[in-house]
């Protein structure tokens, strides 16, 4: 019987049947048993129980009953060939042992986790059979922030300060990075003003599509040109204002013109072809794909129409330059 311990069946009920079989064998006079035999007998005992149950139920249902009586069981046993002779003697034999029922595994009681606050009772519209409300912290709203300032004066003042700071910083930045006017005539430039660069049709810049800049050097070159011609425009402001009528045709056709400076050289070269003009504009760039875009279609009729009036203006510009 020492091999009983070796049987490691996980099913507790089968373990009890295993014990019963072992006990019977021990009573009969066996001292040890093969695991194979023990398992065979256990399996036989289990399947026999099931089989008797099934057979007895069948006999019971055959008789039109739902609850089996002793007769059904006896018929089932007889039908299976189990002899009932000496069953009483076997039941009351000496040395019979009783396998105790294994202790009921007690359900671990769920511990109450950290009761927080006192649970409130149901409000009157909630029936009593519904579960109790959870701890208050699960649904009570607790503000964790300070009440913000909502006075109109304070907010308005704050917004004004912010706006002023932003404008100041932007003005400072622009005065340091771009062209400035001096408020006074001296050169110390204590109070710089952002230079105003008026474009004649003011909406033009917004209408003109601009390309993405891929070549930074080219962009720098554009700035160089702008800076150089800026001086010209600043000096020629009066001229431009006078010749506004003449320029508006040019301004529309010049796609790349951000300021007047690009118009001036163009005006000079107008009699020539557009490609020549482009080359003159960007002398360092020989790749035509990298040059600023020009609109040759409009450019051609315009000079023909406008040649008589603008002729004096280019001359003036040239002299000024």
């Amino acid at each position: 019987m020492d091999k009983v311990d070796a049987t490691n069946s996980t099913n507790p009920r089968r373990k009890i049947l295993n014990l019963a079989v072992s006990q019977i064998l021990m009573e009969k006079g066996f001292d040890s048993v093969d695991k194979e035999c023990l398992e065979t007998l256990t399996e036989m005992l289990q399947s026999m129980l099931v089989e008797v149950g099934q057979s007895a139920r069948s006999y019971c249902e055959l008789s039109g009953r739902t609850i089996p009586v002793i007769g059904d069981v006896i018929v089932a046993l007889v039908n299976m060939g189990v002899s009932m002779q000496g069953i009483e003697a076997f039941a009351k034999r000496d040395g019979r042992q009783i396998i105790p029922m294994p202790a009921q595994a007690s359900q671990q009681k769920q511990l109450n986790l950290l009761q927080a606050g006192t649970k409130s009772s149901h409000p009157p519209h909630v029936p009593n059979y519904l579960p109790a409300l959870p701890d208050p912290h699960a649904y009570v709203r607790t503000p964790t922030h300070k009440q913000p300032v909502t006075e109109y004066e304070a907010i308005r003042e704050k917004a004004a300060n912010q706006k002023r700071d932003v404008e100041k910083a932007l003005t400072k930045f622009l005065s340091k990075t771009s062209e400035t006017h001096s408020l006074f005539d001296n050169e110390d430039n204590m109070f710089p003003l952002i230079a105003c660069k008026p474009a004649f049709p003011p909406y033009l810049a917004a209408l003109n599509p601009t390309d993405q800049v891929f070549d930074f050097e080219e962009l720098e070159y554009h700035y160089l040109v702008a800076n150089r011609t800026e001086d010209v425009t600043s000096k020629d402001d009066n001229d431009e204002n006078e010749s506004g009528n003449e320029d508006d045709g040019d301004g529309e056709m010049k796609a790349e013109s951000k300021s007047e400076k690009e118009m001036k050289p163009e005006n000079d070269i107008k009699p020539n072809s557009t490609t020549n003009k482009a080359i003159l504009e960007n002398p360092n760039i020989d790749n035509p794909y990298l040059r600023a875009a020009t609109l040759p279609k409009r450019a051609k009729p315009d000079p023909a129409l406008l040649i008589p009036p603008p002729t004096p203006a280019p001359a003036n510009n040239a002299v000024a330059n």
């Binding site: 009920r13 079989v21 129980l49 008797v52 007895a56 609850i67 069981v73």
Partner: peptide
């Protein structure tokens, strides 16, 4: 095991009879 075969009885004597009978069979073997 009887319930697993669909056999349900409130009478403990029936269950005990089956139990004794099956064990007697094993004992005979």
């Amino acid at each position: 095991f009887l319930n697993s075969a669909g056999f349900e009885s409130n009478d403990p004597r029936i269950v005990r009879l089956i139990s004794v009978a099956t064990q007697k069979f094993i004992s005979d073997v």
